[in-house]
């Protein structure tokens, strides 16, 4: 069997998502953002929501998400995406409305907007990329930076006495009455990627069913910021990030409610 025969006669088992356009993404080689973008694009397409999606991009590395996934996008000010999404969903209730935010955007400057949008049970989904660092601005300390982890603004490692503790914002979100589905996933292996895709699908479906707000955290790598190869970054994440940010569903109220 030649390669040509397989391509000619075989089935396509994987191709770039239809909604992910041909513009090359600006992300660094190996960046988790690309994987999550693919999943989001696939889920929107598979749900048949392309014409009814209004997405909100953040400030940070994903600021240009609107260049890559072919749906309507609004680009928010730093941290404010959940406020935009709240208004859009209330004004267009039959639209799929989600934000895509990083840890600096969501868990630091936008903490108030995040907590309140989630707790108002806005029927939106927040996709939260947590790589424990500010990527776009050059690798500074984030609220989720691990203790001991070195960044440009904690070059000797994060210390409690100087910088306080890493923020468990997803655990906090799970405590809020307004949240329906809160989960923490990763995209470092095929299995993890498949689980994350299911989580995004579930969150989007709950938000369309009016079950409340949904938060999908994706523990991610920033190999440039962490100064590691993509492969090593994945290993470092497994060994260090997962110990602090445990993977799995923190809350799923969607199953019980009708």
């Amino acid at each position: 069997m030649t390669r040509e025969e397989i391509i000619e006669k075989g089935q396509v088992v994987y191709k770039k998502p239809t909604l992910l356009n041909d513009v090359p993404m600006h992300y660094c080689p190996g960046c988790s953002h690309g994987v999550v973008h693919k999943l989001v694009a696939d889920v929107i397409d598979e749900m048949g929501m392309t014409e009814k999606t209004i997405a909100i991009s953040p400030v940070g590395c994903a600021v240009f998400a609107y260049k890559y996934i072919d749906v309507d996008w609004q680009e928010a000010a730093h941290g404010r995406a959940p406020a935009l999404a709240s208004a859009v969903k209330r004004l267009w209730p039959d639209r799929l409305v989600f934000t895509y935010q990083g840890d600096g955007d969501l868990a630091c400057i936008g903490t108030a907007e995040t907590i309140h949008a989630l707790n108002r049970a806005e029927n939106i989904t927040i996709i939260f990329i947590n790589n424990a660092i500010y990527g776009m601005t050059g690798g500074q300390m984030a609220p989720t930076t691990l203790l001991g982890m070195k960044t440009a603004t904690c070059p000797y490692g994060r210390e409690v006495s100087l910088h306080g503790y890493p923020l468990h914002i997803t655990e906090l979100a799970a405590q809020l009455d307004g949240t329906c589905y809160v989960t923490r996933q990763a995209v470092h292996t095929v299995a993890a990627i498949n689980r994350t895709k299911k989580a995004i699908r579930k969150a989007f479906e709950y938000s369309m069913q009016g079950k409340g707000s949904n938060l999908v955290e994706v523990v991610s790598t920033c190999n440039s910021g962490w100064k590691m190869s993509p492969e090593k970054a994945n290993k470092w994440m497994e060994e260090n990030m997962f110990a602090y940010y445990h993977l799995g569903d923190l809350k799923d109220n969607g199953i019980d409610s009708k």
Partner: peptide, 26 residues
């Protein structure tokens, strides 16, 4: 008409941004 008491003026104006960006009179 949607009426929402936001968590701050910062959130209010950004809700207005989102609503306006979706073509609504906000």
């Amino acid at each position: 008409m949607v009426v929402l008491q936001a968590e701050s003026e910062v959130a209010s104006i950004n809700m207005v941004y989102g609503g306006a960006a979706s073509g609504k009179k906000v």
